[in-house]
């Protein structure tokens, strides 16, 4: 099974990867792993055709929830992460009531406004959210041992392995959902909601479902972040990060599962390796903006379209994959 071997090789490469990196690069690798989950969860939301500007704030909901659960109630950290995701999903369900009265552009603006309101609440209520300074001294993930490996979470490598496993499981679930009849129904709601409804699909419920699932996984990514950096504040989840998520998704392309992940990885590598080396990291927003515009102009179907071309050539004669125009 050559495909099986490719997976084994990829896994080995991912395990070996941090050992070839400097300490600061290892830290970036942790952030990258967390961002992969963030952008992959965002794609699930876009399956039903809605683009939200509140996704990063929802990630923050997961981060705040998990941080507070451990700090105030002493919940065990991995459990609090899971609960952070659940709370983010529940908040999304609440938000869906006003937001899903809107569609398209209005949903976009509405989601931004909803996100800003949540950030305002974090700033306004010092108890329990810590105001503008946020929450400091968040419990780290407790160290543990699995026999052959000792997890020491002050080491980025350890946290990378831990987050890697969590993210891998989450991606697997997201992938299973997308390839299931539920995923097909999401597509149906996106392309022709009238016909979907005439086929008995509760369109509103499916929109809410996609929103809640995407938000839940965004919440888990936020919790992973919170317990790694140990401090969070409202500005960590502002529109700047949202623009990065959008850029990753658009540059990578949203027609396939791996498109946004590819965008996130490639742009992060460009950012950290190239820009940092050149001392241009201050210009990151400018350069990201330029990359977004250039890719819309010259690569409208994203990086994934290059991959599709390459794999198609290799598997010439196989069934051609359809490429929904986004």
């Amino acid at each position: 099974m050559p495909k099986f071997l490719i997976w084994i090789a990829a896994l080995a490469a991912l395990i070996a990867l941090p050992h070839g990196l400097s300490f600061s690069q290892q830290e970036i690798l942790v952030f990258l792993t967390i961002n992969v989950l963030l952008v992959a969860s965002y794609r699930l939301l876009t399956l039903t055709g809605e683009w939200s500007l509140g996704h990063v704030v929802i990630m923050g909901v997961g981060a705040y929830s998990s941080a507070l659960l451990t700090k105030k109630l002493g919940v065990y950290v991995p459990v609090s992460m899971l609960l952070g995701g659940v709370i983010a999903a529940l908040i999304a369900v609440l938000l869906s009531f006003p937001l899903f009265r809107m569609k398209g552009f209005y949903f976009l603006i509405g989601s931004f406004a909803a996100g800003e309101i949540i950030r305002l609440l974090w700033k306004r209520f010092r108890d329990p959210f810590g105001g503008a300074k946020g929450i400091k001294g968040i419990d780290p993930m407790p160290d543990f041992s699995v026999g052959f490996y000792q997890f020491d979470f002050f080491e980025p490598t350890s946290y990378y392995y831990f987050a890697g496993v969590v993210v891998a499981v989450c991606l697997w679930i997201l992938w299973r959902i997308e390839k299931s009849p539920v995923g097909l129904t999401f597509h149906a709601v996106h392309w022709q909601d009238k016909l979907a409804q005439a086929s008995g699909v509760n369109v509103r419920a499916y929109r809410t479902l996609a929103f809640a699932i995407a938000s839940g996984f965004a919440g888990i990514s936020g919790a992973l972040l919170a317990h790694y950096v140990g401090t969070i504040n409202p500005n960590a989840f502002d529109i700047d990060l949202m623009v990065f998520v959008l850029t990753w998704a658009i540059v990578g392309g949203t027609a396939t599962f791996y498109g946004p992940i590819l965008g996130c990885v490639v742009l992060t590598v460009i950012n950290e390796v190239v820009l940092r080396e050149l001392g241009l990291e201050q210009m990151r927003p400018l350069i990201y903006g330029a990359i977004m515009i250039l890719s819309i102009l010259f690569l409208p179907n994203g990086l994934e379209s290059i991959v599709q071309k390459l794999t198609k050539r290799r598997a010439a004669g196989g069934a051609p994959e359809r490429s929904p125009a986004e």
């Binding site: 539920v182 097909l184 022709q192």
Partner: peptide
């Protein structure tokens, strides 16, 4: 003609089976 133009013919018909075979997300995962 109101169809899921971007989906395959089979996928279109599969959406049509939504009512007799209601998807369940947990079972699907």
């Amino acid at each position: 003609s109101t169809l899921f133009a971007e989906l395959t013919v089979l996928e279109n018909a599969l959406v049509g089976t939504h009512m007799p075979f209601r998807p369940n997300i947990f079972a699907a995962i």
